[in-house]
């Protein structure tokens, strides 16, 4: 909240009224040449970043003959939505219906994200707002866990999941996601900024700790939980199911994308259609929550 208050002040500094006209006042220490170089560079790299997205979208609306055209064209000439309808028509006959992959991914993502949000924010609340023995140790363990790739533990995880009898069920993908470390880390760092007096006054009014967490802390850390949802969503939405799930009916959308693209050039249209579908959802979500995410990341630092 304190951060938001600063925003208008910055705007005032930048725009100054000279002779009745609003003029963009240049910052000191900035050369015009440097600014131009920076803008040119941002445009070039920005195009590079966008290239695969535009290519995927354009490929997904290309009719078959254009996919095989030589030289290959970047943009479609006669755009068609056949590739999208093919996904549902052709694939419903040959494999598991395509809609099943969508359902699996959506289900895993929704459950995993909700559970993670609840568990991680509860733990983060205690770590940020309570004093108790072992607090630093517990939080340090999470920071250390951020420092190595999750692949390191996938063999024992496989054995543990198999011991629990969770292999080849949704649980194998959903439950471990509850304890992902990034969400807890960001949530805890953000909750540190929550005024302790706020919690204190609720306690004096007779609220129990759970009420303080649920009705005081959570509504005040909206940017943090939106960010947590984005990160959790992103990793679950893109999970292929790996070695934990092997029945075709439980496989996810990214797995389907891999399979389709492995089919070679004839499948490019369908593959691109899936890619477009996969990318559009998280990108739209990020677009809607961007300012909240940036606000949360400001407290992400490791001290």
């Amino acid at each position: 909240m304190a951060r938001k208050a600063k925003e208008p002040k910055i705007k005032e500094e930048k725009v100054t009224k000279i002779g009745g006209k609003f003029v963009h006042r240049r910052k000191p220490n900035r050369s015009v040449g440097g600014d131009v170089a920076i803008i040119v560079m941002l445009i070039v790299v920005g195009i590079f970043m966008l290239l695969p997205f535009v290519y995927a979208i354009s490929n997904s609306v290309k009719p078959m003959d254009e996919l095989f055209a030589f030289p290959p064209r970047f943009f479609a000439r006669n755009p068609t939505l056949d590739n999208f309808s093919d996904l549902f028509i052709i694939m419903s006959e040959s494999w598991v219906p395509f809609s099943r992959y969508i359902f699996n991914t959506a289900f895993i993502t929704a459950c995993g994200t909700l559970g993670h949000l609840l568990l991680a924010s509860m733990a983060a609340f205690a770590l940020a707002k309570h004093e108790f023995p072992g607090k630093n140790f517990l939080f340090t363990a999470v920071i250390w866990a951020l420092m190595f790739p999750a692949t390191v533990t996938y063999i024992p995880n496989y054995l543990i999941l198999s011991g629990l009898g969770w292999l080849d069920t949704y649980l194998a993908l959903i439950v471990p996601a509850f304890a992902s470390t990034m969400g807890l880390f960001l949530m805890k760092q953000f909750m540190e900024g929550l005024p302790t007096a706020l919690c204190e006054s609720a306690r004096i009014d007779g609220a129990n700790e759970f009420r303080v967490y649920w009705s005081i802390a959570m509504p005040n850390v909206k940017p943090a939980w939106l960010t947590l949802i984005i990160f959790s969503f992103q990793s679950l939405w893109n999970t292929t199911g790996g070695v934990y799930v092997f029945s075709e009916q439980l496989k996810t959308l990214p797995y389907a994308l891999n399979q389709i693209l492995a089919g070679g050039v004839a499948r490019q249209g369908a593959g691109s259609a899936v890619a477009v579908f996969i990318m559009i959802v998280p990108i739209v979500m990020f677009m809607l929550t961007e300012s909240n995410v940036v606000e949360t990341m400001a407290s992400s630092g490791i001290k």
Binding site: F53, N238, A275, I278
Partner: peptide, 16 residues
């Protein structure tokens, strides 16, 4: 920010 972060958030799309 959206353009530069999109590749990360769209995950598997590097398949393209």
């Amino acid at each position: 920010i959206l353009i530069f972060y999109a590749p990360t958030i769209s995950g598997q799309v590097y398949m393209v």
